[in-house]
Write a protein that binds this DNA or RNA. Structure first.
Lengths: 150, 150
DNA sequence: TATTGTTATACTCTATAACTATA
DNA sequence: TATAGTTATAGAGTATAACAATA
């Protein structure tokens, strides 16, 4: 029956939406370590740094587009990241209007530490599951990824 | 081998973290309908309303605790929800310091509409998957739920 | 005195508008 | 003229501190 299939998917959609939203919120909390001797970045600051670390050097305008914020907002984000010496600014080779942003080794390390921290939290939780539950999640991860891209 | 098992989980943690975070972000976008003739609530306002709708009448202090914001912040959230006639305030029966918040039918409807909108988006995406992929997600949902609670 | 909630105030984040420098 | 970026300014959202009402 088509209607039963649709109804089953409606239930699946609700359940999946709730569980995915909750887990994401829980993961976000783990972004910063409590009482760590490292600058506490805001969501946008961290996301910008991570994007720069992943995609390599780019201009403030490109980075603003990536992060879906307006250029003036990115200006302030960059100023903070620069003050903490997580990124550096350089003049563009041929177009002197443009600025080229590059992640410093310290910035790269901060991103890596934050990732390790969240992965470690999740890995600990995963270790409490049965092998079969882990197998299910291993199969589910790429499907979830596909869903977010559509 | 223990080390290989651990390494596999580390990879699973990273992949699952990324896919769950991305899907949650995509779902959050669907909270508001474009160009709808209904008030556009902020994340906190919507979350507070949804909590009240789910758990029933409670005081501002309790609601602030639920949503992990400070009482003064909740005061402002409630003022907005009250202005849009999504919640009502009443005096507590025995303790006159307290205020009792209740969702109005309009508030209940707004929450239901937002849920239906997000569920509909996700259900459409799920319909594009194979039956086997849906089965995997059906098995994964409760496991994800369990992870977020630990 | 302790508790509940509100008001006063400040800080952070983001946006739009106006400006500067360069193409 | 158009583009890249910054500065000026305003509007949300949230926090802490101080206050009022009630227990």
């Amino acid at each position: 029956m088509t209607s039963s299939g649709t109804r089953a998917d409606a239930g699946l959609a609700t359940g999946l939406r709730i569980s995915v939203s909750r887990l994401a919120r829980r993961l976000r909390v783990e972004r910063t370590a409590p009482g760590q001797a490292e600058p506490v970045l805001s969501d946008t600051q961290f996301a910008a740094l991570a994007t720069l670390e992943k995609h390599g050097a780019m201009s403030p305008g490109e980075l603003a587009g990536h992060e879906r914020v307006q250029p003036p907002s990115m200006t302030r984000v960059i100023a903070a990241l620069e003050e903490w010496q997580l990124v550096t600014r350089a003049a563009h080779a041929s177009d002197r209007r443009q600025v080229v942003l590059t992640v410093t080794p310290a910035g790269r390390e901060l991103v890596a530490r934050a990732r390790r921290r969240r992965d470690a939290w999740l890995a600990r939780r995963l270790n409490e599951l049965t092998p079969q539950e882990r197998a299910t999640l291993r199969a589910a991860a790429p499907i979830l990824e596909k869903l977010s891209q559509s």
